[in-house]
């Protein structure tokens, strides 16, 4: 990627990249598009157990056949889960968003209520309803050969406007928000891009390829790990928190000095 970038100034480079990219996209398309429930092996037993869990915990909103439900006035109680895939279940249940405590603008991240095994069984059941994105495997998340620069670039163009450049989160309309990404598991970030939970748009592999997603995940992990070389990051919210800090902590220190200076010695 770096080599490509360096050559970009050649007039013909664009054509070369375009051709390469076309081939790559085509290849990726072929390789990743049909990723579905079949890519992961779930036993019939998993599916059956998952169905039990589903009926007990989810069916009240999503319907007994996961077909989705509406209340009397036509508002959606829970959307249809046919075709959302195992990834959606793993994300929603694995981050504790589902089962939802009460309806509101948006489901919140909270400690998961199902253990890993139960989450897997639920995922198996939902995956069996129709083809959809599967849970990414280790390889898809490996940051070993990831291109951080590419990940950062994709993140800034596609994600930072909602999640903030540092992944600190941001506001959407009418009480909805894009959550903070710090401390979120890699696979959950990946699944969120793939399935577009709640108001987040879907970034399937046709939009951001599997390797690009891996780069984004790796970039976020790198941001987390590198810390803040300048010191306390103040939540990475930028100039506002910096200004608040100047008006509170720094001003208090200065006032303290001034009062000491102006007071008569004992």
């Amino acid at each position: 990627m770096k080599a490509l970038a360096a050559r970009r100034h050649h007039p013909l480079a664009f054509v070369a990249i375009l051709l390469l990219a076309l081939v790559a996209t085509g290849g990726l398309y072929a390789a990743f598009q049909p990723r579905s429930a079949q890519a992961e092996s779930y036993s019939q037993d998993d599916v059956d157990k998952g169905e039990e869990l589903f009926l007990a915990n989810c069916a009240s909103c999503h319907g007994t056949n996961a077909q989705g439900m509406q209340d009397d006035s036509g508002n959606t109680l829970g959307p249809s889960l046919i075709g959302v895939g195992a990834a959606a279940v793993d994300f929603q249940v694995g981050t504790g968003r589902m089962p939802m405590q009460n309806s509101g603008a948006q489901a919140w991240r909270k400690p998961p209520q199902m253990n890993d095994e139960q989450t897997r069984q639920l995922a198996a059941y939902v995956a069996s309803l129709g083809p959809g994105p599967s849970v990414p495997d280790e390889e898809a998340l490996s940051s070993k050969d990831a291109d951080l620069e590419n990940g950062g670039n994709i993140f800034r163009v596609n994600c930072a406007m909602c999640h903030n450049a540092a992944g600190a989160g941001g506001a959407l309309t009418r009480g909805k928000f894009a959550p903070s990404l710090s401390g979120v598991e890699s696979k959950h970030i990946y699944e969120a891009m793939e399935t577009g939970p709640q108001n987040m748009p879907v970034f399937n592999d046709d939009n951001i390829s599997a390797s690009d997603k891996r780069d984004v995940v790796a970039y976020l992990k790198a941001l987390d790990e590198q810390g803040s070389p300048g010191g306390i990051s103040l939540g990475s919210f930028g100039p506002v928190t910096e200004g608040l800090y100047a008006w509170t902590i720094v001003l208090s220190l200065l006032v303290g000095c001034a009062v000491w200076l102006g007071a008569k010695a004992k």
Partner: peptide, 20 residues
């Protein structure tokens, strides 16, 4: 205390923007 960590914002390009 860190202030204006510009490497997090990235180099200017007219397409991206950050929340906040």
């Amino acid at each position: 205390t860190a202030i204006n960590s510009i490497w997090v914002y990235g180099p200017y390009d007219p397409s991206p923007v950050s929340a906040g």
